[in-house]
Structure formats: C-alpha cells, structure tokens
Design a protein around this nucleic acid. Structure first.
Lengths: 111, 111
DNA sequence: AACGGGTACCTCGTCAATCTAGGTACCAAC
DNA sequence: GTTGGTACCTAGATTGACGAGGTACCCGTT
C-alpha cells in the first residue's frame, strides 16, 4: 500500500529534490518529474503546476540555467543545468534538510 | 554550529510535532513550544504566530481538546489534551512523514 | 518607581509555495 | 478520430508559517 503524501510535506523540499536530480546532469522539466517519481516508486508525485513555477524560480535565483533543445523522440524540450551557485545551494539545502529530519526524529523517538 | 531551519520545512510537520508532544500527556501551548525546542536542542524554533493558530486549527478538527487551568507558578494557562481522533491522526501523519522521508532519502542517496 | 525579562495568551497582515484545472502543440497507435 | 503520451505553460485558490504587534501579571534589579 502506498501512503499518499500531502503536498505541504513537499513544501521546502521540492527545490532540494530538483537540485539533486540535476546534479546527475542536465535534464528537462518533464524528465525531472518522471525521474523523481521513478526513483521514489511513485511515493512522490510531482505536479506540473508546482514543478514549472519552481524551475522558473530557481532559474531567477541563478541556481539553474535553461536552454531549449530537442529530445530523443523529437520533442521540443527545455533543458536545465545546475550552476555553481546551484551546487552550493544543493549542499546548503541538504544540510538544512538533514538537520530538520534529525530534529523531528529526536521528537518522534522520545519515550 | 546550528544550521537554521527554514520555515517552509516545518510546513506540514508542525501538527505532527504537536500531536506527538501531547501524546505524552496534556500540556499548554507555551509548554509545548518549550518542550519541542528543548528536545531538539533549539534546532527547531516554534514561533507563537505559528503555534497558536495551529492549536486552534487542530482543536476545530477534533484532534485536541482544550480547557483553562492554572500553571504551577500561578499563571492562567490553556491545557490541551489529545483526543482519540488526535491519536489516529498522529499515527496517520507519522506514517506519511516516514514515507516521505524515505522517498527523499532514496533520491538523496542515488549514485 | 521604573524597567527589563519571563510566562502565557492572542490576532492581523504578509508572504511563499503547492495544487487544481485549465490551456497549447505534436505524434503514434488503435 | 479519439485516446494517450510527451512537453511546455499560467491563473487563481488555498494553505500555512511568520513577524510584529497587543494584553496581562509577576519578579528582580536599578
């Protein structure tokens, strides 16, 4: 049974997930969503209405670069690449995430 | 060094933390915040502007009961108690949280 | 007497981010 | 010719956390 994950849990983590995905190499938006869903066994669902605004934000912040290209099957795609700033941000966000998970775990583990 | 935790990470998790706190027994709002900050070594900061609205929401949803009382030092306090529904919600939210952390971990662990 | 600081509650307005539901476009398969 | 997949986008609604403010009482210090 797959437990549905509420959207507000994703809040503040979507960027981290996207940055991590792009750390493996350039990818286009749709591909990022598919990759994330695949590697989490569909535990995460990446809504397009969340993803595209997020990609836009991250581009504005200089974390990723974008350029138009063509996919293997001939579709017009926008390919995103991690910048140096993006790599720094990834490191940063992962540290925050770890620290947060750690804190919550400490609470949940109390007895 | 303490890594500051962005507020959006807390989004969707504050309820879980409060429910878990109340699972140890009745507590008042201010006390809940202090307990959470203490047990996480101040990794989490519970803002009152987040906490009190959250308590109100959870009461409306039937997860917690509230009644006025007096603290050990004579202050007027509002004491919250977990309901059966709240206990069910705690179980539910913890399952979702675990599932989510698991999914993110799988992404972050890829190599 | 005045002040700062701790306990304890509350609310208003702002902000940020996700999601739903729509839309466009092309192509392959049935 | 209609469904379904790939691939992009946006507008509006909703939600929740937060900062900043306020009230009230008490204690200890200046």
């Amino acid at each position: 049974m797959v437990i549905p994950i509420r959207g507000d849990l994703l809040q503040g983590t979507l960027d981290l997930l996207v940055l991590k995905t792009l750390n493996w190499g350039p990818r286009h938006g749709y591909g990022i969503a598919r990759w994330l869903e695949d590697t989490t066994g569909d535990a995460l669902h990446i809504a397009e209405g969340s993803l595209y605004p997020a990609l836009y934000r991250m581009q504005q912040r200089g974390w990723i670069d974008a350029e138009w290209g063509v996919s293997e099957i001939g579709k017009r795609i926008k390919v995103y690449t991690l910048t140096d700033e993006g790599r720094a941000q990834l490191k940063n966000e992962f540290a925050q995430w770890s620290s947060f998970v750690n804190a919550v775990s400490r609470v949940m583990a109390t007895s």
